[in-house]
């Protein structure tokens, strides 16, 4: 049987490897609720990004192509987060409303891209308002469950 000593590694390298491996193991196990709250933080950040993108488009500060590509990136990330939430063992009172908010955010994002593509300014302003409301709902859900919204 081999061990770290038989590998002939120098003491400093051996210690570094052991510390790194132990810390990796310690870091990788988080309770499901905490993991989902982390996911919620990322989702909240993407909803805020979509909101700011819509606002800046309305102020003529970003082009329509940027709205479209940002929406695409955000939807793909929100899709992943909805999937993660679906598989999560977190309490249903956190998991289900979170999935609902993320699904709604994906739909709003799609409409944001469409309305920007049609140069429909009131339409974009409406979707920005909906994103603000979703952001507030998510913040409240995070707070209820002991999460921190930055």
């Amino acid at each position: 049987m081999w061990n770290l000593y038989s590998l002939g590694l120098r003491p400093l390298v051996r210690t570094a490897l052991v510390v790194a491996a132990a810390s990796s193991l310690a870091c990788s196990s988080k309770p499901p609720k905490e993991k989902l709250l982390d996911t919620a933080q990322t989702a909240s950040s993407w909803i805020a990004t979509l909101r700011m993108t819509g606002e800046q488009w309305g102020a003529n500060s970003v082009p329509t192509s940027f709205v479209e590509t940002t929406v695409k990136a955000a939807r793909s990330e929100l899709e992943k987060e909805a999937d993660d939430a679906g598989k999560s063992k977190a309490p249903p009172e956190l998991r289900d409303p979170f999935r609902q908010i993320v699904t709604e955010a994906k739909d709003v994002a799609k409409r944001l891209s469409q309305t920007a593509g049609e140069n429909d300014r009131p339409g974009v302003a409406r979707e920005v308002g909906l994103l603000a409301a979703l952001q507030e709902r998510l913040k409240a859900l995070q707070k209820q469950n002991g999460g921190e919204s930055q």
Binding site: T42, S45, M52, Q56, N60, S61, Q135, K139
Partner: peptide, 21 residues
């Protein structure tokens, strides 16, 4: 605004408020 940078699209908004357009 609650935006953390997990993608460069998010960083691309950094200068838009100081220099509109």
């Amino acid at each position: 605004r609650g935006i953390q940078v997990d993608d460069y699209h998010q960083a691309a908004l950094m200068l838009t408020t100081a220099f509109p357009f």
